[in-house]
């Protein structure tokens, strides 16, 4: 769910549909990258300010790659890899008892 379904759904919405529509409007591709990143960040309100800043910066990265490459498939792959690595990292630190639960 976290590694495949959520990234595909989110990228389809933010870097796919929203980016396409907003990039074609008066705000242009740069404005679309910033706005889609902000909208994506708002979706992750369970995080603290640092986590939100991180999400916003990752959104800027994905948006820029979407613009350079013209490919949403690239951002889907990156998003899946990122979520898989974070999920793996959390599993390992939890299993080793490094993380208080």
């Amino acid at each position: 769910m976290t590694v495949v379904v959520a990234p595909v759904a989110e990228e389809l919405l933010f870097r796919g549909f929203l980016y396409r529509g907003w990039a074609a409007s008066r705000i242009g591709p740069t404005g679309a990258i910033v706005l889609t990143s902000a909208a994506w960040m708002i979706m992750h309100t369970q995080r603290n300010w640092l986590g939100l800043t991180y999400i916003f910066c990752v959104g800027l990265l994905y948006g820029s790659i979407r613009r350079w490459s013209g490919s949403t498939a690239t951002t889907v792959i990156l998003h899946c890899i990122n979520n898989a690595l974070i999920a793996g990292y959390l599993l390992i630190v939890t299993a080793l008892g490094w993380l208080d639960t």
């Binding site: 389809l12 870097r15 796919g16 549909f17 490459s69 490919s71 949403t72 498939a73 690239t74 792959i77």
Partner: peptide, 15 residues
């Protein structure tokens, strides 16, 4: 419309 074109390896590397 959604930009589902095949990804290129350099773009994935940069990302």
């Amino acid at each position: 419309y959604l930009g589902f074109v095949p990804p290129r390896l350099p773009d994935i590397g940069i990302g």
